[in-house]
Amino acid sequence: MSAPLLDIQGLNIAMRLARGGRLPIVNDLSLTLQAGDTVGIVGESGSGKSLLSLAVMGLLPPAAVVSGRILFEGRDLLSLDDDGMSEIRGRRIGMIFQEPMTALNPAMTVGDQIAEGLVRHEKLSWNAARDRAVELLDRVRIPDPKARASAYPHQMSGGQRQRVGIAIAVAMRPALMIADEPTTALDVTVQAEVLEILDDLCQRESMALMLISHDLGVIARMCARTLVLYAGRRMEEGATRAVLTGPLNPYTKGLLRAVPRRRADDGPLETIPGSVPGFARLPAGCVFSDRCLDVVAACQAGEPAWTSPLPGRGVRCIRAGEEVSA
């Protein structure tokens, strides 16, 4: 096997608190992507998904303290300074953000916002870059791209803006695309189209995709592999089909039960009882133990280790073995 495209090893992210001290958020997270891999990252709000993606981009907030290793194309991103990171951002790693309404500069035409990265990384003239921006708008299926290139973001719909966001991110054909809830803010009808555009571009450019979402349906559609996060920890990982059809971790099962079904006769929607406890008040032992339906006394004894009870699968749960043999 060739060297992985992205190799995250033992990543920890803590937040420096205003009143002093540090609050650990992301804990001992490891994740490997080969070129062209598609990985979905799922977890409830506050589980650290965005922090993980920002850590890869080197755009964590100043209060964040990060340790571990993020190897990308063989270089340790955490040891690069901002200039070094700027060379990689946009050019080798593209990112799409959640909020199309606020993620674009209101005082700059969308064409220029796409062209900007090309001017910076490919040393194109602004005119040449603007022509490329029109092509890119066409590729994300904006009708009449030549005219729309000189539009401002407020003159576009949410779905169109998110396509502009995609055009910005794919402009330099990065090897890795990170999409942080790219469709959460969009109407359901628009979501499908945006996902299709993203999927299409990723395949055509053979980009690896790290897709963050609450929505297991989106992940099932887009990603070959899935990583389930809870309170900054890996809970479960494996091929998407395997994880969704045979979850090993009670947390993943809870997430699956909470997915709305299309059929109307399914009865009331189930939710996981309780909510993600604050990072300052995590239970002893397994961080999910206070909400887990399958909890036993041993769960509180210590944080379960990351184990691999089946080939290609990883899970953090002391009872996962029972699940496999059952």
């Binding site: 755009l59 700027s86 951002r89 674009l104 500069n105 990265g117 910076r120």
Partner: peptide, 26 residues
């Protein structure tokens, strides 16, 4: 602190360019 400044940084623009072209302009 706005999202679009982060978008500009994610394109790989250096801090100085982001500051003047995106932040100061707005």
């Amino acid at each position: 602190g706005e999202d679009f400044v982060r978008t500009a940084r994610a394109k790989g623009l250096p801090k100085r360019v982001t500051l003047w072209r995106h932040a100061v302009r707005n």
